[in-house]
Design a protein around this nucleic acid. Structure first.
Lengths: 343, 343
DNA sequence: ACGCACGATGACAGCGCAATCATTTTGTCT
DNA sequence: AGACAAAATGATTGCGCTGTCATCGTGCGT
């Protein structure tokens, strides 16, 4: 019945540290959170006591008392998609060394799932939130708009975003690919796309638009699947495309997995790339440039998006309203390699 | 000065719900956590009130009061490495639909960083922990041993593990690759490895052992780099290998990125695979089987490791001590495709 | 030397929930 | 019908920390 009968592994608390250091609990709290407002002498004593006792703050208690956490929520539609692996890398580079840490939520391309995660994350009072699209459910969007923390939407950018945004013009990027293919002289391009989320849909629409403008649109050459993207799927989609439209002379792939798969299938079939078939990829992950032939692609600034997103978020957390540029367009780059060529 | 002067966006609490439902706060708490012990009538009233007020529990308060959370910590050495992307997928499949959620910590192959993350995670009182190696610092290992929650170590398996383990015999897997290469009749095999973490080191040692046993070991044919693995690095390492040891007739790659890179470099150089150069990969991510020629590889059960790890962990959390098989060896599989062949 | 401002420190209450034990209600058996 | 067990519910307290104020000391200007 002893007041302090610790059952097991009970960690030292602020009070224990305070007693050890001969100061009050709140002074300990302050030496941890804002050492600069504590006297040199007190700080040293407290630091010594912390080390001696092996004290670690309890984030739950801190969150409860302060009504805020050091968690940055990051919602991504996929963990296997290399695109988001690169974004992740950028984000992690940015949080490193700060007091914040990232919590990842994977909604697997389900807007409903995303809404649930938004709700879940917000219930934890995060310091900030990064979400990977503009395509929330209405309820999801509302939650974000009313969120008591800064929010950055990534991948695309728009002044209509909930709060801040970092990305690039996905449609213009696809148009650049389509124009490139047309300018090379290919006249019967196809389009391969997997995982038809809203963004993929919009990119397809952008392709249709440019293809039509060049009078080279044929719906028979547009092959899509709701299934996940993979190299195998790229082979399979090219197989379908060639079965339906053997006249196809180029193919734009909605991401690198598909492009690599399409390239491999073409090689299997002894179709000469780029002579008989041009291939243009999207995103340009590392592997693409090393294929033989090296893949031409629209390179997207995935890692930089992660970096900038976290930078904006942290700045806005530290000083709300301080971020001037709230919508950043990082652009894209058409990288012409060996898988397309003028003819 | 009103007691309940809410500044902003203050969410309803248990007490608010209780008042609305005409029951006590603890009854609300119970309908949420263990509905089966609450009467049908009370449950309905509470659920109605929750819906009406849009109540969400505060996880911080819950964690503080109960001294435990629903967080599962998952420590991985890399987020870009496809190996862990697959593990992640398996883990996510397993937590889905449970009350738990996964928090990922990326220690970027730094044992010191890992120790910090272990400390950090444990301070949050996680429900369980999954760590991706056996190579913790002594302090890190001690922390895990004394952790007040179940711990699963993955990728390798050993009765010496801290608590539970799921994996396979990495050394035997590499030996299988080396034996396969020898049995094909290759006599001057090389070994390519990036990111020389302890596990990669051990695998290299296993290769040396088998190569020596077959009297085909030559240190000049072992090319390693501490830098991260990538397709480009695979090309680069093969280039180095061929410069140092042009007689090389096969190469075992410590993972798929390197193998794909090596294959591409071989194709660039018009080296016939598998006739002039055999290539055997490790892990066998999806892409490997679609290359031309398709890569022979030792396939590792990454996704299944994730699945089993989370399953064990959840079982152990629900009923401590209930898990019988605490060390699971999932084996590996040698998949012979086109990049190696008998000669 | 006095008063003032500011830096440094502390006392106290309460964040929202769950553990614990007490109490009431309900059902069951003789 | 009465006694008892079991189920259902509730009152109280405290988890470990931080917000808010109050208090104390120190250096400074005049």
């Amino acid at each position: 019945m002893a007041r302090k009968s610790k059952i097991q592994s009970d960690r030292p608390t602020l009070v224990d540290v305070a007693r050890e250091a001969g100061v009050s609990a709140i002074t300990v709290s302050r030496t941890i959170r804002s050492p600069e407002i504590v006297s040199e002498r007190a700080r040293r004593k407290v630091e010594e006591a912390i080390r001696k006792l092996g004290y670690t703050p309890d984030p739950a208690a801190s969150a409860l008392a302060s009504r805020s956490t050091s968690t940055i929520g990051l919602l991504v539609p996929s963990l296997t998609n290399n695109v988001f692996a690169d974004v992740l890398r950028g984000v992690y580079e940015g949080v490193e060394g700060t007091r914040f840490f990232v919590q990842i939520g994977n909604y697997r391309y389900s807007a409903l799932s995303e809404e649930g995660l938004i709700r879940n994350f917000l219930s934890q009072r995060p310091a900030g939130l990064i979400v990977s699209s503009m395509d929330q459910t209405p309820a999801g969007r509302k939650l974000l708009e009313e969120a008591p923390c800064p929010v950055v939407q990534i991948m695309e950018t728009s002044v209509d975003s909930v709060d801040m945004s970092v990305g690039f013009d996905q449609l213009e990027a696809v148009r650049a690919a389509a124009r490139h293919v047309a300018e090379c002289g290919y006249r019967r391009p196809g389009f391969l796309s997997a995982r038809m989320d809203p963004r993929a849909q919009r990119r397809l629409a952008a392709f249709r638009e440019v293809a039509a403008a060049h009078d080279m649109l044929d719906e028979a050459r547009i092959i899509t699947t709701p299934q996940p993207s993979s190299v195998g799927m790229g082979r399979h989609l090219l197989e379908q495309l060639l079965a339906r439209a053997p006249e196809t002379d180029a193919v734009i792939c909605n991401n690198d997995d598909l492009a690599v798969g399409a390239l491999m299938e073409a090689i299997r079939r002894n179709i000469a790339v780029p002579e008989q078939l041009g291939i243009c990829s999207y995103n340009d992950i590392e592997m693409a440039r090393h294929m033989v032939p090296a893949l031409s692609a629209v390179a997207t600034p995935r890692r930089e998006i992660g970096r900038r997103a976290i930078a904006m978020l942290l700045a806005e957390i530290e000083a709300p309203g301080s971020v001037r540029e709230r919508h950043i367009d990082l652009g894209y780059e058409l990288v012409v390699r060996e898988s397309t060529s003028s003819r």
